[in-house]
């Protein structure tokens, strides 16, 4: 017999599959890393092979923010605002040393890592990371989302069983 939980978990799986294979990245590119990000979307590396080519500059239409470049204190409120404007579920990839930790700019105007204001899912080191490095990071994010959704599914299933038994 097909229960309610079977339907919802299948829908969840489908949703996860779709989500994983079509990130819509929002490139928050400011500096050197943005140039390497451009390399990732141009023909030599071509992120479209993973289904991630729909680069959206509007936060409302994207689900992965790729912060590429130094974030200064002046930029920080903008970054926060754009992150807040993104609809859930959303992820953040921090690309390069500056975005991850401030890099070698231990300076009066540079944010020491964007995790001061937004949660980061994947940190990609490098200054700037090679395009492969960024792609590796994004693929790691994909794995992470898979893992998370599996865990969620498991919890849901357990929860569904509980509620079923309680009803019986």
């Amino acid at each position: 017999m097909i229960g309610e939980s079977w339907v919802t978990t299948t829908v969840d799986k489908l949703e996860e599959w779709g989500r994983n294979n079509s990130f819509w990245p929002l490139p928050f590119g400011t500096a050197c890393c943005a140039i390497e990000f451009m390399s990732v979307v141009s023909s030599h590396y071509d992120m479209a092979r993973f289904g991630y080519e729909v680069v959206r500059f509007s936060p409302r239409q994207s689900d992965v923010m790729i912060v590429a470049g130094t974030i200064t204190d002046k930029m920080a409120p903008t970054l926060k605002r754009i992150y807040d404007q993104m609809p859930d579920p959303k992820w953040v990839v921090s690309m390069g040393a500056c975005a991850c930790s401030g890099g070698f700019y231990r300076a009066y105007h540079v944010m020491q890592g964007i995790d001061e204001i937004v949660p980061v899912d994947v940190y990609v080191p490098g200054c700037p990371p090679t395009p492969e490095g960024l792609m590796y990071g994004i693929l790691q994010l994909k794995e992470k989302i898979k893992r998370d959704s599996k865990r969620r599914l498991k919890e849901k299933r357990a929860h569904g069983d509980d509620s079923g038994s309680a009803a019986a």
Binding site: A97, C100, S101, G102, G103, F104, G113, V122, Y123, V124, P125, G126, C127, P129, T130, E132, G133, Y136, G137, Q140
Partner: peptide, 28 residues
């Protein structure tokens, strides 16, 4: 995450104790 991969540590080492690899697949 701080490292900028400039290679200065390799230049500085008097013992060839630190070198760099070809590996760029890193994510945390």
């Amino acid at each position: 995450l701080r490292c900028v991969f400039c290679g200065y540590c390799v230049d500085a080492c008097p013992e060839e104790a630190i070198i760099m690899s070809n590996n760029y697949d890193m994510a945390f």
